[in-house]
Amino acid sequence: MFTFILWCLLFVFCWPLALLALVLYPIVWLLSLPFRLVGISVSAVFALLTALLFLPARALGQRR
């Protein structure tokens, strides 16, 4: 809601900048999408490596 109010104020005070932001937002979102996917993939790989490295410690801890 706060973002909408700020956008309305920007539209009232500087409408060309507000329209430019409205048009450029989807383009910037599309350009940043591959970087988000790479970030999710790297995070998943690190989670997998962490799980594989700590698997022996967890297996030994459960036997006791």
Rank of each mutant, 00 (worst) to 15 (best):
F35M: 04
R64H: 11
R36A: 15
W29P: 00
G39L: 10
R58Q: 15
L33P: 01
L55C: 10
F13T: 08
L9K: 05
L48D: 01
I27Q: 07
I27N: 10
L55F: 15
A57P: 06
F35T: 09
L19R: 03
F35D: 02
L20D: 12
F54P: 00
L24S: 14
L37V: 04
V12F: 09
C8I: 11
G61A: 14
L55I: 08
G61L: 12
F2H: 07
I5K: 05
G39S: 05
S32A: 02
R58N: 10
T3N: 01
L9N: 02
F46H: 03
C8W: 03
R36M: 10
F2A: 11
A59N: 06
P34V: 08
G39D: 07
F4C: 13
L10R: 01
A18N: 00
L24P: 04
L49D: 06
Q62F: 08
G61T: 04
T3G: 02
W15Q: 08
A44S: 14
P56H: 05
L6I: 05
W29S: 14
F2N: 03
G39F: 07
W15C: 12
A47Y: 04
F54Q: 09
W29C: 09
W7I: 07
P34H: 03
F2G: 02
W15R: 14
Q62M: 08
L30D: 06
L19P: 10
V12N: 04
S43H: 01
V12P: 00
A44Q: 07
F13R: 06
P16H: 05
S43P: 00
L24C: 09
P26G: 03
I5F: 04
G61K: 08
P26Y: 15
T3V: 09
F13W: 00
I5R: 06
T3M: 04
L22H: 10
V42G: 00
F2T: 00
R63W: 10
V28H: 03
W15F: 14
L60T: 09
I5N: 00
L9H: 05
W29F: 10
T50N: 13
W15T: 13
G39V: 04
M1D: 14
F54L: 15
L30R: 14
A57N: 02
T3C: 04
T50V: 11
F2K: 12
I27T: 13
V42A: 10
L31S: 06
M1Y: 06
